[in-house]
Structure formats: C-alpha cells, structure tokens
Nucleic acid binder design. Structure first.
Length: 696
RNA sequence: GGCGAAGUAGCUCAGUCGGUUAGAGCAACGGCUUCAUAAGCCGUGUGUCGCCGGUUCGAGUCCGGCCUUCGCUACCA
C-alpha cells in the first residue's frame, strides 16, 4: 500500500472531510476508524505523525437547508461540526486537529493558491448560459433540470444528455425545462464561470498516477481507462451568487465551488494546528521530509487523484505520497437503508454498544484493496465474543486473580519460546498494519492468542494453586500468560486503545510504544482484576437496528413550513428529519385547475412481472375497473417483491402521455414517495376505494 | 447495455515466483477440562478451487472464451 518509511520522516494523514449536511453513520466510520488505526500505529511506532481533518461546510445544499430551517449557515455548520466531533470522540477517533473549511486560514490559502493558478495560466474564463430558477433564486446544475429531449422529443430527460437517444446537449436546449428544485420554469441567464484547464497537467498526472507508488493498482487502472486516455475537460470551479462559500476576490459575484476549497481545507486545518504549536506550515506541506497520506472512499477518487494532485503540483505544494482508497460498507450484502434500519448513526450505536466492537470488527475485515466490506451482525457478534472476549481478554481473566497479591515474577521465566515467537510475529503484524492489511494483522494476533490459551491449558494454573509447594511456579506461569496478554494488547493498541489502557492499569505499566511488545514486564504489582470487555448483547444490536428504522409518522406535521400550531408547544415536540424536504424543496403554487389536469386513479395491480433485462423496473398490469387495463413500468424492483404487488391497490397517473421504453410501452405512472432505490413507498388507499375511483 | 472488481469448505477469507497430499478462523460434530465473562483445550474436512478450452513435465495460480455475483452508470422515481 505504501512504501516503508524512513523513520526521520514526518507523516501527515487526512481522512475525507465529512459534509456538514448530515450526521456520521457507520458507513462513514469505516474510513475514520481505518485512518485512526493507521495513525495510532504510526505514532506507537515512534513516528512523528499528524492526523488532520475538518468539516466540509460550503455549497448549495447547506445554503438551501439553512434557508429551510430559518437560520444562518454559520449556525447550522457550527452545530453539525459539534455533533461530528462528539461522534468521532465517542469512537476513539483521535484527531490532532479538527477544523472547518469555513475558516479564515482556508480563505487565505484559497486566495493564494488561486492567484498562483492564475499566474500559471491555468484559469480560463467563459460565459456560460445556464438555466436559473427564479423561484429558488439560484442557478441550476444539469441534473437539477429536466425536460424534453431536443432530438428525439423524449420527455423527462436530465439536462446533460438524453437517456433515450443518447444525444448530448446543454440544459438550455431542453424543450419545456423544469427545475427539479421547485418545479418552476427556469429562465436562461448568462454568467461568467472560471475553469481550471486541467488538461495542461495530463502528462504529469499520467506519470504520477501510473508510477505505481501513489495509488492502488485498481485505482491507477481505472484512471488510465476512464480519464487519462482523452483530453481532460476543464474543471468549472466557480459558482455565481447566491452561494454559501468563499467569494472569489478577483471575480465579483462568483464563489469558489465547494470542491475547490474542500481539499485546501486539509492544508488550512494543518495551518491552524501549526499556529497553535508554533510550527511552520511549509515543514508539513512543502517538505521532502514529510509524507502526506490521504484516506478516502472510492466515491471521491476523481477529485483526490486527478484534480487535487494537479492543483498541488501547479502551485508548489507536496503531492500525496499515497492516496488510500477504501470501498463502501454494505450491511448483509445490501446497501445501507433507513427502511431496514441499517443506516445506523454513530450516536445511536454509542447509546447501545461499545465502540471497541466496531473498531475490531472493521479491522478484521479491512484489507489494502478498495473493496466494499460487509457488516453482518451475526458475524459481528461471533467475532467480538470469540476473538476478543474468548481469546484475548480471557487470558487476563484466567490468570490475573492468582497474582493479585504477589505481582509478577522478578525474572521472566522459561516459556518455551512463546514470548520470543510473539516478538518475531510482531514484525509481520507491523508490516500488515503499515500496508493497511488490518485483516491480516488481526489473524496473526489471534494466532498468538490461540497459542497463549493453549499454554494456559497445559500448565493448568488452577491445579498449581492447590499445591502450596508450587506457588512460585504458579507466579511464573501467570507472569508468562500476562506478558503474552500484554504483548497482544500492544499489537491491538491501534485498534483497541481502551484495552491497551486497561492492560496498563492492570499490570501497572502503561503501554506507550510498539517496542513495549519486545521486552517482558517483570516485578510489577498486579491490580485487582476487573472485567475488561463485555460480550456483545444481541438484544442491544437488534434494538439498535430497530431504533434506526425510519418510521413514517403520517399524522404529525412533517415540516415547519407553516406557522407552528399552538398545541405543539404543550405536546412533546416531534422533530421530523429535514432531509427529505431539503432534497426536494416544495414546488411553486399551482391552481386547482392545474391539479385537475392530472388524472390520478385508484388501480389494482392484476399482474406484476419481472423485467429480466432491467435492474430497477417491474412491469405492472393494472386494472382501472371493468376490463380497462394499463401496462405501466415502475422503478420499484428493489423495494417490492412481485408477490407484494399483485392484488394491491395503487394510485396511478392515468392520463400521462404514454412513453415508449426499451421494454415496452408504459401507459401511466405509479405514484410513490421516497428517495429511490429501496426507499420507495407506494401510495395506498384506505379500505373501500375501488379501481377506477379518481383522486380529488 | 457500458465500465470495473470478484468467484477457493455451510459462513468469512488466506493461498507469495506455476511445484509435494489446497489452508485458517467461525459454525457443526465427538471427547477433555472447570482457572476464566456458558470462556478454554484436543480431535474430526469426500472442497468438481465458477465452467470450458489452451500453454506446461506440472495450473487454484498464466492465456482465451463463457457463466454468475457485486459496485458504478443507464432505463424508473
């Protein structure tokens, strides 16, 4: 994963900046735990290492959300940052500095880097005619506009290309465009945009990405195949006002796009740390003696492996030594979903379970490849119980009590080479950590734990205890086992810092360095034994999943758009999540006549069929009463089984213009709510309604 | 459909440069033990290494084709 370090080198490590629009969940934690383990390993090994992070705070999403919640962006991002930091601390993720991209330092750095990019001739200005939503008062990105394809007249196409005839065009070419933010008809408006001409750096980027030193091979291949074979498109790094972010000093009315200032936030956050610790920023970001390691998810590969190195190169900052890219988290092989309760927030987990469990479980699954990892709760419980409680912690609880009065032997006794074998294995464990192969490290550690338990069995301290003449031997055996336990605690310290602390307390000698694993501890007192870790309570796991399920509350006011009703003051406040409304703000007012144009009808699904070639579609035959039927394709395959659909009542748009699709003609649309994917909720009707009834 | 990754024991995975009889943990089963948090120890594997073909003295490993799964993307919303 990365080259072996020369030990006088400094290491600067970053994890991706979490966006201030959402709370930390167990999917995010894969990355922060992965990074924290690596940082702790480096520090334990005696290397000078900084772990830097910050909240990513800018962008349209933050602006709209703050607007919806009736408060300032600053208030919103401050609150989210506090929540993020609390969650991270709860999982023992220890940053050296945690900042915000909305900082004075970041603004100053953006300005400096910007003017350097200008002087390097990398910035191009161009007028861009874009659609503008007069309702929301903002320009619309391509995918926020839908309309009819100018080529084939297919309706409902996104603003960049037609899914039907593959034509590419600009959103301003769409016939009858509609803003997906408000439903308003956008107007054309011209604005100046600023672009970074990344193509000028393609030669450098090809060499840098393909050198084999900075990226996993899978990632290098991906970039080669997808981007580096063709000229790179200029990167649009400005957004016209209104926008929550930094105003571009030499371009009035324009702001830096959030993805421009976010990675610069890595440097800005380091700078803040430097100011507090009286250090030079250039020693960290412009020095050959410092390695920079970014940990990110595969979703933001593009930015961190092309744009970011390109910018750094152009402005004279150090390039990353390595970009460590991990996959996504699935739960039971499925994407996390709120409906299934698998989108578990960090704070919810911490209410019910020990963070050490998740740290160990992730460690046992994480390798150096950018592969997805799967969380399976059965395996989670089994692994923690069996490995940590049954094997590791058990070593202490089998022996510590026998030496509470006497402490450890003065000299380390003969142990048949067990401790020495552990020292040898330590090098391989260290190598595995270094390479990001934590799964391998955990396997090696558990092999040692197995050997130690076997030793306990063979020496049977409980038998020695009964014979007064064998008390010295008993102390020796316990000295050996507790030293093997301590060795394991050193090896596990990057993953389980709490355990290593508890071990320090038990044996009255703190674990401070990896090298503590190389010398046995002798002659210390042994504290009264206390349980070091509890088994996983399966009921708590179930409770966590249950309480993470999003339950629709149909009768509560869903959003505070109108005046809050007076009774809300006396009843306990039901706070609904704001995300759905932010994701899709209210459409502009329409008249009753407008509404009457849409003919919504109750219909019964009489046949639900698989569309084998389609991943998301099912083919429904619905009855509108009598022998009037319609064929409708609906994108609900991931959310409903065919059996669940057949026979049930749905509400369809009965007078929608039929649409020819690859799989057949769709004669209407089934109404549903939700974000898509597995989060699709069909509209139902109370008992009594009949197929053919119109919805008024 | 496009791009990428992966298929090895019931589950999770290791398997380096092509080299003896393909391994580990968990689960299961049998026995032992009772220090320990119902923990621990010993023992038990008839696996078409996804399929077909090729290269080779020799293929889980290299090459070609196919199948399946997963991810991204598209169709839907």
């Amino acid at each position: 994963m990365s080259e072996t370090k020369i030990d006088d080198k400094k290491i600067l490590v970053t994890a991706a900046l979490p966006y201030a629009n959402g709370h930390i969940h167990i999917g995010h934690l894969v990355e922060y735990i992965q990074t924290d383990i690596w940082v702790r390993f480096q520090k334990l090994s005696g290397r000078r290492c900084l772990f830097i992070c910050a909240d990513d705070t800018h962008g349209t999403a933050i602006m709209i959300r703050a607007r919806q919640e009736g408060r300032s962006e600053q208030e919103l991002i401050a609150q989210m940052q506090a929540a993020h930091e609390k969650d991270f601390a709860g999982f023992d993720i220890e940053f050296d500095h945690y900042s915000s991209t909305n900082s004075q330092e970041n603004y100053q750095l953006c300005t400096e880097i910007w003017s350097k990019l200008r002087s390097e001739g990398l910035i191009r200005e161009d007028d861009v005619e874009q659609l503008y939503d007069p309702q929301v008062g903002t320009f619309l990105a391509d995918r926020f506009v839908k309309g009819t394809c100018p080529e084939c007249k297919s309706p409902g196409e996104y603003g960049d290309n037609c899914s039907k005839c593959s034509a590419t065009y600009s959103p301003t070419d769409l016939i009858d465009p509609v803003s997906t933010l408000s439903g308003a008809t956008p107007v054309k408006k011209t604005a100046k945009h600023l672009f970074i001409q990344i193509e000028q750096l393609r030669g450098f980027l090809t060499q840098w990405t393909q050198s084999g030193k900075h990226l996993q091979t899978e990632i290098a291949n991906y970039l080669k195949g997808h981007f580096l074979g063709h000229p790179l498109r200029d990167w649009d790094v400005s957004r016209p006002e209104p926008y929550f972010g930094f105003a571009i000093p030499d371009s009035p009315g324009n702001y830096w796009y959030v993805w421009f200032d976010a990675p610069i936030g890595y440097i800005a956050s380091t700078w803040q740390w430097c100011k507090r610790h009286n250090e030079q920023l250039s020693d960290w970001w412009q020095s050959e003696h410092t390695e920079i390691h970014h940990f990110i998810g595969k979703d933001i590969t593009y930015f961190h492996t092309l744009f970011w190195p390109g910018v750094l190169k152009a402005v004279g900052y150090s390039l990353p030594s390595f970009v460590h890219i991990h996959g996504f988290l699935t739960v039971d092989k499925e994407k996390m979903a709120k409906t299934r309760g698998t989108m578990i927030r960090a704070s919810k987990y911490l209410e019910l379970l020990d963070p050490s469990y998740l740290r160990y479980y992730y460690a046992s699954k994480l390798g150096p490849k950018p592969e997805d990892i799967d969380l399976n709760f059965q395996e989670f419980i089994a692994k923690v119980d069996s490995d940590l409680v049954g094997k590791v912690v058990n070593l202490a609880s089998r022996t510590a009590r026998f030496v509470e009065g006497t402490g450890l032997s003065i000299e380390y006794p003969h142990d048949g080479g067990l401790f020495a074998a552990g020292v040898v294995a330590g090098d391989r464990i260290a190598e595995a950590y270094e390479q990001g192969d934590y799964a391998r490290a955990m396997r090696l550690i558990m092999e040692l734990a197995d050997a130690a338990n076997s030793f306990v069995e063979n020496t049977a301290p409980w038998t020695l205890k009964k014979d007064p003449t064998l008390q010295v031997r008993l102390q020796e055996v316990c000295t050996i086992v507790l030293n093997l336990f301590r060795q394991l605690c050193v090896y596990l310290a990057p993953v389980l810092p709490r355990l290593s602390q508890q071990c320090g307390k038990l044996l009255q000698r703190e674990i401070v360095a990896w090298s503590d694993s190389k010398t046995p501890l002798v002659g210390t007192q042994v504290s009264k034994f206390e349980h070091l870790m509890q088994r996983v309570d399966p009921k708590k796991v179930q409770q966590m999943v249950d309480e993470s399920k999003e339950v629709p509350k149909s009768d509560a006011p869903s959003v505070p758009v109108a005046q809050t009703p007076v009774q809300a003051v006396t009843s306990p406040a039901v706070t609904e999540a704001i995300e759905p409304l932010v994701a899709e703000p209210l459409a502009p007012t329409c008249t009753i006549e407008d509404f009457a144009k849409v003919d919504l009808r109750v219909a019964r699904v009489i046949k639900a069929e698989e569309v084998p070639e389609a991943k998301k579609l099912v083919k429904l035959t619905v009855s509108l009463g009598g022998d009037v039927t319609r064929t409708v394709f609906a994108g609900i395959k991931a959310a409903y089984t065919l059996e669940q659909l057949e026979g049930r009542l749905v509400v369809i748009v009965a007078n929608l213009q039929p649409r020819q699709m690859k799989f057949g003609l769709s004669e209407g649309m089934v109404t549903a709510a939700g974000a898509g994917g597995t989060e699709v909720f069909l509209l139902g009707v109370d008992t009594g309604a009949k197929p053919g009834h119109r919805v008024h």
